[in-house]
Design a protein around this nucleic acid. Structure first.
Lengths: 130, 130
DNA sequence: CCTTGACCTTCTAGTTACTGGAAGCTACAT
DNA sequence: ATGTAGCTTCCAGTAACTAGAAGGTCAAGG
């Protein structure tokens, strides 16, 4: 398989696959005589794994760890769970932050009449010290 | 006032103030004879405004627009509200995404016994095609 | 007067995770 | 022979800073 094929199958763009190779997240692909990268079904699996983990908010470094754990038949599920839990914590924290932002902004927008008049509670709030 | 003073008063680090000047978000500060940047209370206000807007999730470019609107005595509150609303939309979208991630990860973590045994629903899920 | 320490200056480079584009080679169909 | 699609490498840009190096400035203390 060439890079375009594995890109389509795994859902990871060719550019991104080359990038993952460059940063060492995946092993350098073997090359054909013409210099093209060659891939197998296993590579498709690996890239899909990465794609799904990234979609769940794991960092590239997390992916590297998860991949190592995935390939280690001896690893304990506790190791994996620890990474997942710390990620859940970060996600929850981010959600709380965003909710606070949203609430403040919504309150301000509600109080702003939003017409041609220049007075605006949003700007007034931003310019005040709290 | 020197950069360190205005940094402390506004809550924006000195490094960041220089950066804001470099990218044109704020006007270049006047210099003292020794080459140090000099600031006034107005600058403190402006930096505080930016800091608060950034804290509410506005991009630096948003800040640039908000600042222009803030300094325009003729502007309508509708212009400001439009920026705020589009920001609220982006924040809500991000919250929905993060909640979906969190739910999937929590479900997986719940099903993972998290002990020394190697079988792990988290990795199994990541490696499956959906 | 000299030193110490806290600031200040500029410049370069690193962070995260890609993405776009240019220049040039290869493969295959018409 | 030619077109075009896909492959290669390398360089640069994105957002918004942040760290660090090398060196100038200033006030206080001995």
């Amino acid at each position: 398989m060439k890079i375009g094929d594995v890109a389509e199958k795994s859902g990871v763009p060719a550019k991104t696959i080359r990038y993952y190779e460059e940063i060492g997240l995946i092993l350098p692909a073997k090359r054909s005589d013409n210099g093209y990268r060659r891939y197998t079904e296993d590579d498709t699996q690996t890239l899909h794994f990465i794609s799904r983990a990234r979609g769940l908010g794991f960092s590239v470094e997390d992916c590297s760890n998860l991949l190592a754990l995935y390939q280690d038949r001896e690893r304990s599920s506790a190791d994996v769970k620890a990474i997942a839990l710390s990620n859940i914590g970060r996600i929850q924290h981010k959600i709380r932050e965003l909710r606070a932002m949203e609430k403040t902004l919504s309150d301000l927008a509600d109080r702003c009449h939003g017409d041609a008049r220049p007075d605006c509670p949003i700007l007034e709030d931003l310019s005040e010290f709290h």
